[in-house]
Write a protein that binds this DNA or RNA. Sequence first.
DNA 1: ACGGGTCAACGAAAATCTTCGTAACCCATC
DNA 2: GATGGGTTACGAAGATTTTCGTTGACCCGT
Lengths: 127, 127
Amino acid sequence: MSAPTRPTDAELAILRVLWERGPSTVRQVFEVLSVEKALGYTTVLKMLQIMDEKGLVQRDASDRVHIFATSQTQTQTQRHMLDDLLDKAFGGSSLNLVMQALATRRASREDLAAIRKMLDQAEGRKP
Amino acid sequence: MSAPTRPTDAELAILRVLWERGPSTVRQVFEVLSVEKALGYTTVLKMLQIMDEKGLVQRDASDRVHIFATSQTQTQTQRHMLDDLLDKAFGGSSLNLVMQALATRRASREDLAAIRKMLDQAEGRKP
DNA sequence: ACGGGTCAACGAAAATCTTCGTAACCCATC
DNA sequence: GATGGGTTACGAAGATTTTCGTTGACCCGT
């Protein structure tokens, strides 16, 4: 159970498909990815083989056509990558990161309300 | 003025030093980095040469000992990398990203208060 | 002028990431 | 049981990233 290595861009593209579709075959992943970008079927296959070795995905090989699934939830991976970015580009300051995130893309009123609600919980406020 | 490529990990380590120290010589960057990790002087030099070609840093070669400086502020780079992460791992949802960032244990009580304050301003609350 | 120390440039090796051609395999249908 | 379409396995090439040894230039003190 070693620390999962940070997914590369190509790996992340595949993970995105698996998160959205759920467990999928190579062909299913390929169909989705090939819409946006020209790439070969065996490229996707190879990536999934490597990701399996790295532990990024799990493979169900009980049928002839193997089924691949992510081994971490999207949320877990997001946390991991955020933590990584926090260390490497934000000096560990999550305040700084949050400020930047809120400044970059304007959050809707509902978003802000949701964040406020979360702050209340985090701070353990009494109403 | 092409879109600056996302810095690699090694590049980011150097950028961190330059952001903190300001414009520096190869040796100065090397001294800082070699504290945490064993690496050669020429490794740092080569990295800075490459980063110069990529446009990540700017070089003042008017003296014999060259001075390197970042070509983007830390904030600009942070925005860029956050945007990248947002697309690639968060489906473009900054709300989601902020929530995750707040959910880590790295946000201190003061951080949360500062964010709350910012929310107040963003929502235009009257006191 | 000489020698030791510091410097940037260059090339190349090592490591990692990305892509795909080829082969081997399985199964359904002719 | 041969053929064809779809599958995984394998290896290797190409691209990028990371590392550093070597070389030649430059400077300063003797």
